[in-house]
Amino acid sequence: MASLTDKALAGDPRAVARLISMAENRDEGLDSLMKELYLAPSAGKAWVVGVTGSPGAGKSTLTDKLIEQLRAKGERVGVLAVDPSSPYTGGAILADRLRMQRHTDDSGVFIRSLAARGSLGGLSRGTREGVLILDACGFDVIIIETVGVGQSEIDIMRVADSVCVVLVPGLGDDVQAMKAGIMEIADLFVVNKADKQGADRLVNEVRAVLEFLQNKDWVPTIDRTVAETGDGVPSLVENLERHREYAKARGRERERARMRARIEDIIVDRLSLQASKLLEAKEAEILPAVMDRKLDPYSAADMILAE
């Protein structure tokens, strides 16, 4: 019987989907499958595009239009769309693909919804592995649509080659555009719903922020779009393609930073798993003392780590 990774590499959508679930669920045996995929000859070729911005900015509708344009160029497109999980029940309504359903009949498109499952950076636990899986399984472009984010959910820059920040008019004044965080990670700005009042002002505000960056070797572009009708999307795709070339040219530098972050994430993941095990083993013994203020939490941590 062919292994799950063999089936996925051969293009079986069920196997691809199953691997992504294993990554989401942190299944045992995941690491060895990921090792296999990372070293597969087909891996490491995909272009990863991030689409981020506030809830309701039009990320899903824009992604739908991006898929259309990229398919017309013959690219195989994978999409990972992240939506929030309930902090109370862990449940989720994943509805990003609602706007992309017309591509479901196209075997050159694979769309997967991911629930954030407690992650706070705009991505979900399985997103990074999801990228590796789709990449190894032959998708040329992988679009990651983040959770609708606020101001500082910037994990996407550690995963994507090209980051689009989607803004819409009417959400704040020009000081918002000067703030740190999400405004700094854009390779491309998209002013969506550009037919709405305030779009010109928003474009000017973003442009004013970018003036400080003129000496950089890539100055973020600004595109006005109406994702609903597709207006402005072809120009956005042109700028994306330019950024793809740019990113490729100075790829190793960014790749180095990214791989370092990746290794760090894996180490932190494993240590945190170990930490919860240690804590679990000692908690009955130590916790009451801390609650009765006979022991401080810092010494408690020292005691647990000394084990």
């Binding site: 069920r14 989907a17 449940g91 309504i93 994943l94 509805a95 479901t104 009949d105 769309i111 919804s113």
Partner: peptide, 25 residues
Amino acid sequence: AGMEVIYTGLRQTPEQIVTTAIQED
């Protein structure tokens, strides 16, 4: 109830529904 619900909306064909279920595992 703590489940992850993939909501596909109106006017889906059986083909779209089944492909969605497979991609979404």
